[in-house]
Write a protein that binds this DNA or RNA. Sequence first.
DNA 1: AGTAAATTGTCAATTCAAACAACAAACTTA
DNA 2: TAAGTTTGTTGTTTGAATTGACAATTTACT
Lengths: 407, 407
Amino acid sequence: MPNSLLPTDSDRGRNREDLREHNLSAVVGLLHRFGTLSRAQLTSSTGLNRTTISNLVAELKSLGLVFESQSAGPTGVGRPSVMVSMSGDVVAFAVNTALDATTVGVVNLLGQVLMKARRPNPANLSPVMAVQIANDLIIHLRAKLAPGTRIIGIGVAIPGQVRVAEGVVRFAPAFKWINAPFGPMLNKLANLPVYIDNDASLGCLAERTMGSARKYKDIVYLFGGTGVGGGVVIDGKQLRGATGYASELGHVHISDSDVEDHSGLVGTLESAVRRDKLLEVLKLKAANEDELEAAILSTESREASIEFQNQIDALGVGVANLVNIFNPQVVILSGFLASLFKFDRERLLAEFQKHALVASQEEVVVIPGKLSANLLMIGAAELPIQALVEAPSSISQMPVTKGRRKI
Amino acid sequence: MPNSLLPTDSDRGRNREDLREHNLSAVVGLLHRFGTLSRAQLTSSTGLNRTTISNLVAELKSLGLVFESQSAGPTGVGRPSVMVSMSGDVVAFAVNTALDATTVGVVNLLGQVLMKARRPNPANLSPVMAVQIANDLIIHLRAKLAPGTRIIGIGVAIPGQVRVAEGVVRFAPAFKWINAPFGPMLNKLANLPVYIDNDASLGCLAERTMGSARKYKDIVYLFGGTGVGGGVVIDGKQLRGATGYASELGHVHISDSDVEDHSGLVGTLESAVRRDKLLEVLKLKAANEDELEAAILSTESREASIEFQNQIDALGVGVANLVNIFNPQVVILSGFLASLFKFDRERLLAEFQKHALVASQEEVVVIPGKLSANLLMIGAAELPIQALVEAPSSISQMPVTKGRRKI
DNA sequence: AGTAAATTGTCAATTCAAACAACAAACTTA
DNA sequence: TAAGTTTGTTGTTTGAATTGACAATTTACT
């Protein structure tokens, strides 16, 4: 029976409702990425008829997802087209449970972070406690939301491997969590749809939606924080793998070294490119991202420079590997990897070119990430937002903030 | 203007015709993978209505893509369902331009190789000559096709990097080709749609459609021939990358060794896992796949065993890297890599487990490939077949073999 | 200022693919 | 033989996109 075998999405037949939902989704997706578009632009981008766009926009308006306005400036010959924009009162919560603190943000459909709240984490944070803290912050922010705001869900960024479909944190070395059902627990407390993913993957999503990678659809992303994580976008879609663990790009074995990384693997990119070593040679105890970058770019220590060069060489190999494997349009270096890149761009590119196939490297660009402060807020929020984009009419079932609406 | 930016497929709106084409495609896709299905099975697999399946099958029948028959055995309670099968008189040409010879096959929609023709290649094969040889063989086979056979196109497997969209061989080290417009040239001669891709990628496609990977939709494939190539399937779709060069899995840098691979890169999987070295320690001048495997499995030379072990260790690292990156359901080892795997399964798996993340490795299986003789015929034919599956009604524009049809 | 050309929005009518409801057909089981 | 189950078929309904005609609004040109 074919039912038991690979029920790929393309095997499913579609009916008229699916058709409508797809077209609503196409419109919402464009508006999400571009903020505001005219109805004429929507017509040409989707290839649909004027009348159809008119109907679709009307339906989205009645769902409260978009609003229309007159075009401001001059628009050329012909009747000016009506501008369509995403509604500002539809938001998602973004949660980032990091080692030192939990941060929760309120992000609207344009990727703007409207509010943020942060609470330091205790040592030995348990999953239950982490969920509790996240929920507390959500409650706190939820109370401050304008009346009439609709909430589409919660996106959570976790420094670890996540079974995306079940919302279970399979392994988070920073907290020593194993099989923590973070998603279901938070869903029970907050009573909102919860989506979880690896933090680096979400950083990649953020750069694609709002950062340096907006123009691209084949993206490799490397993030240097405590460890080295990664994210991959292929033809506009996030790479997740069979269970959700994909794109562990920091754990790629690149050398015969027997230095261990944070997951105990030897000779990996993460074992060679490491923040703690940078702090050590810079004689810093701690530093945020900007401070570390400033220190890297201004150091005159010879010992430090040598360490930077070694890390840059390893990074060059890592990037080359990923270019050979994925043939992306762009490689984005983020976190302290961007700082290393800025320290000696030429060296990194030279090492990269040495280890990448000629054809694969000739059209790829390597650039630093653009977002920093709100990176994971935007990325995490993107999860519920993407779910909404894929099924716009689901908005009608989302909770609405009570109270009298301000005018 | 959004037109200039990422016109992702999902941005395009769909109309009724697209809907119909998608549903036709769903039916054809299922039939292509499963050969014969009842209309009832099609109904449940697609989720469409009985009536709709009836209409879709009727349309496919009138297109000559499928035929119906009575079910043979007992079918359980209720009225027996009509069986639907792919038509046998729709075929694709498969071309494999390898170093020693060019092979052309005729493959039907069920992945059966109906005919095959082979001609040795001269030394210093030029692109023009290669196309000429391929076309000669095609003409030869075409003349032997039964009258009424419809030809949907030509799929070509090339040992090198291919710009898939343009059909240009960017770089084929075996032939020293650079930017050879193989696709357009063959298209001009044969006057049929031509699709080209890297041979290892097509091996992966073949294993997915007709081989060991039928049950899976997240697949990593490694092929050991002259060099080491690879293919990746993600959620049922082939990984191609921005320009078509993706999945060069043999050129991943895994060690500090300065041994060069066939593309001049050092420390790569291909530089450590190599057929020529195997032949050398086995004291063989040449060997086909089966002979090599027999020699590997029966050797008693200590020197050879050590070499095997070294290569197996390198392969284990390579597999671990790919599992960390892709989190696949299955890793398939093909060509002489399968032979190495069979030589010491335990050692390979141990080395793999040592270098892969615990979570990522726990649900993946490593298995040898199943196809060998017709691997690339099936894989190459899969290209035009997939094009047909995606747009079934395009069949009406395909050429038909002339002559009186046999009865 | 006035008119032509270009572009966009809207309305009514049309199209057609999928679903639905009812019934017929063909099998198994008691 | 009758009841129950599943599948195929026919006629009808539904609804999303399209089409064509016309109105609205701007720019360009005389």
